[in-house]
Amino acid sequence: MTYINMIIESPLLRCIAVLILAPTIGTLLSGFDRKFTARLQGRVGPSFWQPVYDILKLFGKQQILVHRTQLAYAILHLFFMMLTLVLLVLGQDLLMILFCQAFSALCLVIASMSVRSPYSWIGSQRKILQMLAYEPTLILLILAVYLQNNSFLGFKVLERDTPLIYSMPLMFISLLFVIAIEFEKSPFDVASSHHAHQEIVKGTTLEFSGPFLGLIEVAHAYEMAMFFGLMVAFWHTSIIMGIVLALIGFILVLIMDNICARLTSWWMVRFMWTIPLTLSLANLIWLWR
């Protein structure tokens, strides 16, 4: 216990711990996702550690690169995703965190725009539409946190004595849709799908191969862990309840993934700007004092 306390006390150790733990949590979540999907389809499915094997395999493969710019932006994508997580763990300004996360996504867009494959271009254009679809909801979420704490700082949330879910249940529902987009789940997996390849082959990650694809997969694991952490933060007073809440949210997203077909990118934008945004605004109205 003393070690755990020591890690929680010191910001540096906390950052190192989260940088090591987050990809593990992210890959385990996608392992759970693949197993769960397989069970829903009535088959055995891969091992629970399959995403870990996938990433380790990718790092052992031959390095083929289209050009250096692509690699630079892939590394920046990973770096800014890690920075987002570190800022979140340090309880920094939530707007800054949102900015870092958006820049990380933008790096992936630039990386896939920098090659000459038309599929990759279409994928990155759709990724921009995805960002257009979910960013307003995230900004409203941060605004709602501000209205309750009178501060944009993340650690102020942890000082509250009632869980956020009591005052922001509708926000949680709209966050689930954002998470479905971020985790590349149907019906929102227009830019790059996590399961089978799709009509634009693999979209944004099309021109990456071997270890460079591995970098993007690691960044994705960080991203998954970060959004899972956001869901846990909705019930910060009890960590067990937080994890239960986050798992329920994650399973709901997986069920939606399995029962929906992929829809068009503009449908996604229209949907996100109506239902989740209305839910968030309704939630915001009753928080406004």
Partner: peptide
């Protein structure tokens, strides 16, 4: 998929 097989559309 129980052998880890994924069908990808991309040789890379």
């Amino acid at each position: 998929e129980r052998f880890g097989v994924l069908h990808v559309g991309n040789p890379k």
